[in-house]
């Protein structure tokens, strides 16, 4: 069977991968199609820049195609591609901030980032207060404020919905490290979003 030109849809990923590894271009295009949105979104979140995200998207799939024979098949193809994409995205960040390097360990835990400052209940559907564009800007700004190690874990776990294990594998981190970064990322975002989403009349106060 061939997936050349995408005429025959092959749904089983293992089969599509086997075809792609044999050099079937149509099969590889199917894989690209399946994951291009997720990789683009992931790249946009990490780089916070559309042009960089587009470069990351292209570089990721070109690299994946070139090195497909190195994919061991021990992990999901998507996790392997995510790993390439995260590395490319971090390289973009490094380039943009040439004065210092950016790594997955940058700006990590000082112990202050689990402090809860804002305690205020949110509306049931707080996002309805804003237009889609306004909401997008609020959410992007909050994610952008996270340091790259927290931002990357949050994007993989809570936006791209990778499991903790897959996130650990894609980022080459231990499971406890993923969990600890995820907790801090979620709490930091919660703090920032509370300013926009808290129920009117509820006062925020510090605790813990």
């Amino acid at each position: 069977m061939t997936a050349e030109g995408g005429k025959i849809a092959v749904n089983d990923e293992t089969e599509v991968l086997a075809l792609a590894r044999q050099g079937d271009v149509g099969a590889f295009s199917q894989l690209m199609k399946r994951y291009e949105t997720k990789i683009f979104r992931l790249a946009q979140h990490i780089t916070q820049n559309r042009e960089d995200a587009e470069d990351v998207l292209q570089e990721t799939f070109l690299k994946a195609y070139e090195h497909l024979d190195q994919f061991q098949g021990n992990s999901k193809f998507y996790t392997w591609v995510v790993r390439i994409a995260v590395n490319q995205a971090l390289m973009k960040l490094r380039k943009r901030r040439s004065d210092r390097s950016v790594s997955l360990d940058e700006g990590i835990d000082t112990g202050e980032d689990t402090v809860i400052r804002e305690i205020a209940a949110w509306d049931e559907n707080p996002e309805q207060r804003y237009s889609r564009e306004e909401l997008g800007a609020i959410l992007d700004e909050a994610v952008e404020s996270l340091s790259p190690p927290y931002r990357t874990v949050f994007v993989l776990r809570d936006i791209e919905e990778l499991s903790t294990e897959e996130t650990a594998e894609a980022l080459d981190l231990s499971i406890p490290a993923v969990k600890s970064r995820l907790l801090r990322a979620r709490l930091q975002l919660r703090e920032k979003l509370t300013r926009f989403f808290k129920r009117k009349g509820d006062d925020a106060f510090a605790y813990m």
């Binding site: 949105t37 979104r41 707080p126 996002e127 997008g136 959410l139 809570d158 709490l187 919660r190």
Partner: peptide
């Protein structure tokens, strides 16, 4: 804290689901 953290996660999930390339 628990409720607003849960909502933080879901507001991102719901918003991003509609995203396309």
């Amino acid at each position: 804290v628990c409720d607003t953290t849960r909502k933080t996660i879901s507001v991102y999930k719901d918003h991003e689901k509609a995203c396309c390339i």
